[in-house]
């Protein structure tokens, strides 16, 4: 018997997108395969690495631990949706400026996590930044520049507001 398909509608980065997916389709795979948005990366599918993190109604969640059908009708922001047209977001600019990335594999997850973190807490302490990004793994940078980038992003956001 073929697997039953479910018709779902997601608002991804402000655009209404429809897809037909089996119940077991992970949100990460739905974004990448069904919707062609390959900015969301997939590392472990255990919830451990954090590179698949996207924003669900503005709140960061693991897209590898969410079924697409569960979030039918809701708003998703992926790394592709962070920039304002051609202009990168403050968080993206800060990561570029501070060398907060090398290979870039972990970067989409960090950018989404940090975007939400600074929205909730525009001037985080050292401790709060550490706690905020503690669920994201990076194999390249050694983290120090990522931490700097978060503080720099907070600065840029304060300057521009």
């Amino acid at each position: 018997m073929p697997e039953q398909a479910h018709e779902i509608t997601l608002v991804v980065n402000g655009t209404v997108r429809r897809a037909e997916v089996p119940g077991r389709r992970l949100l990460s795979d739905c974004l990448r395969h069904d919707l062609g948005l390959t900015g969301t990366h997939v590392g472990c599918e255990h919830g451990v690495c954090g590179c698949c993190t996207v924003l669900l109604d503005g709140e960061p969640v693991r897209s590898c631990l969410t079924f697409a059908v569960t979030v039918d009708g809701r708003e998703i922001t992926t790394v592709e949706g962070l920039a304002d047209g051609d202009r990168m977001s403050p968080v993206q600019r800060a990561f570029a400026e501070c060398h907060g990335l090398q290979c870039g594999f972990c970067t989409p997850g960090f950018l989404c996590t940090v975007t939400a973190l600074l929205r909730e807490n525009p001037a985080p302490t050292e401790e709060e930044v550490l706690e905020g990004v503690s669920g994201n793994l990076c194999r390249c940078t050694g983290y120090q520049n990522i931490l700097k980038a978060v503080h720099r992003a907070a600065e840029i956001m304060a300057e521009e507001s």
């Binding site: 919830g47 954090g50 993190t53 669900l56 709140e59 960061p60 969640v61 693991r62 631990l65 969410t66 996590t113 706690e131 905020g132 503690s134 669920g135």
Partner: peptide
């Protein structure tokens, strides 16, 4: 319990 992002779900 886990990380903040896991605690959101």
């Amino acid at each position: 319990v886990a990380h903040p992002v896991i605690r959101n779900r």
